[in-house]
Design a protein around this nucleic acid. Structure first.
Lengths: 390, 390
DNA sequence: TTTCCAAGGCAAGGGCCCTGACTAGAATCG
DNA sequence: CGATTCTAGTCAGGGCCCTTGCCTTGGAAA
């Protein structure tokens, strides 16, 4: 077994595949710090970590600048740089301090070595596949896009990742993936839930991507990544498009649940026509608003529907909101997806009839909030993985 | 402002009261460790911390035993004990190693000094008030109980806490409180939600208890504490008694939401008679199962009700379970409260008709799970507060 | 060319921990 | 009852990491 350890995340180096390099996880899962060596090479490691962090923030620094920035002495800074250079994590850029700075001796600029590698950020959805390689600074190094037919998603994913891999000189230390379908938290696979629209289809991104990446592959639902990108502590994101979903952020962290299916609200009971209780997704079946032959909602038809139908839908959404309030107590609720913001007026009215009130906002129609969240996670994990191994 | 910092918790030293000692919070909220001094007195602090932890675990140890236990050298252990003794955290117990141990020189047993203090664990519910003082080892030092009339809850709480305070020689460093009503996460007050049973009533435990305690006062709902005591990573606890509630544990942490009202499921929509959508609590009104004159459910009447009514209730609970599954994705659901386990068979049958399945368990009828959770939290916070200030 | 001045290196010193040897002191053995 | 045995605690020496203070280096300004 070599599951990813870091707690707040969905997971998944493939358990069985021997071809997968997958992070070695040296010397046992380190508990908070105190489990570490009782001795004082800990403080050296800490110094090195601070040097790396300073170089992430400032891109290039002389040893004197490092000392000033971190608050350590010059000899210590010099020693740390020497150690890190020896390990290949830091390199002399060859640049020297510009003459303009003053008259003193010129300093040598050091920066993180390219060998520290990059991270892959991948989004998979009905609108296509985007794979992108980012460096520690958060800059894009390379990217590739595909718009495959539904049957070729797996192959196209492999192509895109392979292309990015070839375009990237650095090693790729991990991948973070967003998929537009429910993701099984344990295996990282896309799963089909009964009666839910299945936009991407059967897919095991971990198995495909692992071959091109040296470390863990993290997969999660796009709605979760979009929610993570909001940077709020307690809120809920209601996704109302061809599929139905929700993401819940509590105490600053995304709530995933035991199998990662938190927010799959299709089967939530709510109010249907004539006040009957009905599963949320079934409402659209009854109203004839599902795309024929699929499980997806027919959004264009929905948008053209009568006022009465829209009221009915909004009332049902109100029931979903009541459930979200009861079970997640968000500070506010963001309504997104292809038709959610379209009905925001009716939904607000329906929510106003609930016993507990929560502010509702329509999602800003930004490009793709999920990819923002994926990128942020990829960068933060890349940085963590660098400082993790001393 | 002096809100408690530690993230995973509901909070509340009173903001305004100048009479409140309330923890000083010295030198800024320390981030994980790296924000600490860059130097190596950090490792000394770490050593001291380990000594304290070892003394918590073993109660009394000689310096030689400490060295062996922690894995440090004897001189280092001796130095640490000297420092800690000087600071009043550790004391020579006067006990000496028993002759039976061997023939060598007798050693001096050291233990944590009484001055490190204790923690208050308080439960407030319709069945009464219990205040209890615990020491670092988790042993009860003193306790007091009250069974006040509803109008005297505040006064009785003050009495009980005061009594425990007087019985305790040690300083009391913090209090953890369980209350049988919804707790506002920000203020720590008990809040009345529309149409919910309000068992304890208007109360501000923080304001009352603060006067007797040197540190923070943490208040939360009893259902949350009961859930926390289960020690599982991802599950939900459904409380079905005179009041209705739920607690959600995700990734090992209790979910509270922005105002602490996560799990207040009274207004969740579910299936009522004739398949109509109805708020969970209203069902009991329609069935005539609410105590006259109150908002509480009449449990004896409920238990005597007909099979049809029980089926109806179980179906409604099934709807609540569907919502919990959709929005929390628990590994399993524990059903507790005064009538939940009573209907577990019917509820299981209703849940079996849902599209997604989750194992249901009846809560073990242990004494009071909430007080277990409160005690555990009090002890763990007490220990953390000791090791926190070096 | 000389002067200036910051970068970088060297040496000394302090703190913390470790190892190994020594002292202290009580129980057990002969 | 003294010698032996064995362990608690202390002392001395040494390594590692960091700091301060001073010196050297080497371009730019004068």
């Amino acid at each position: 077994m070599n599951f990813e350890r870091s707690q707040p995340a969905p997971v998944s180096p493939t358990p069985g595949d021997p071809a997968v390099p997958s992070s070695p996880d040296p010397a046992g899962a380190a508990s908070p710090d105190s489990a570490r060596a009782p001795s004082q090479d800990l403080v050296r490691a800490l110094t090195d970590e601070r040097v790396i962090r300073a170089l992430i923030d400032h891109r290039r620094l002389t040893r004197a600048e490092l000392a000033a920035e971190i608050g350590i002495s010059k000899p210590t800074a010099g020693e740390s740089v020497r150690r890190l250079t020896e390990r290949g994590l830091v390199a002399d850029t060859g640049e020297r301090t510009p003459g303009g700075r003053g008259r003193g001796r010129v300093g040598s600029y050091y920066a993180l070595a390219p060998a520290i590698g990059g991270a892959l950020a991948v989004t998979i959805g009905p609108e296509g596949i985007v794979a992108e390689c980012l460096d520690v600074y958060g800059d894009g190094i390379a990217s590739a896009t595909r718009h495959p037919e539904p049957s070729r998603v797996g192959a196209a994913l492999a192509e895109a990742v392979s292309e990015v891999r070839d375009l990237t000189p650095q090693p790729i230390r991990l991948a973070v993936v967003s998929a537009a379908d429910p993701v099984d938290r344990v295996t990282g696979r896309l799963v089909q839930l009964p009666d839910s629209p299945f936009l991407v289809g059967e897919l095991d991104p971990v198995a495909i991507i692992c071959a091109y990446v040296d470390g863990p592959v993290i997969v999660d639902n796009d709605v979760n990544w979009a929610a993570a990108a909001q940077g709020r502590r307690d809120f809920a994101y209601l996704y109302l498009g061809e599929g139905l979903g929700a993401a819940i952020v509590d105490d600053g962290g995304i709530r995933r649940g035991s199998s990662g299916l938190t927010g799959e609200i299709s089967h939530l009971l709510t109010v249907g026509p004539q006040g009957r209780a009905i599963a949320f997704i079934d409402l659209f079946g009854e109203l004839g608003l599902r795309k024929p032959g699929t499980t997806a909602i027919d959004v264009p038809r929905l948008k053209e529907s009568s006022t009465a139908v829209r009221e009915t839908i909004a009332t049902a959404v109100g029931g979903v909101i009541a459930a979200v309030i009861a079970l997640a107590d968000p500070e506010d609720i963001v309504v997104g997806g292809s038709w959610g913001p379209f009905l925001i007026g009716e939904i607000r009215a329906a929510a106003a009839r609930l016993p507990r009130q929560v502010p509702l906002r329509a999602a800003a129609p930004t490009g793709s909030p999920a990819s923002v969240g994926v990128r942020a996670e990829a960068i933060s994990r890349l940085r963590a993985s660098i400082t993790a191994d001393l």
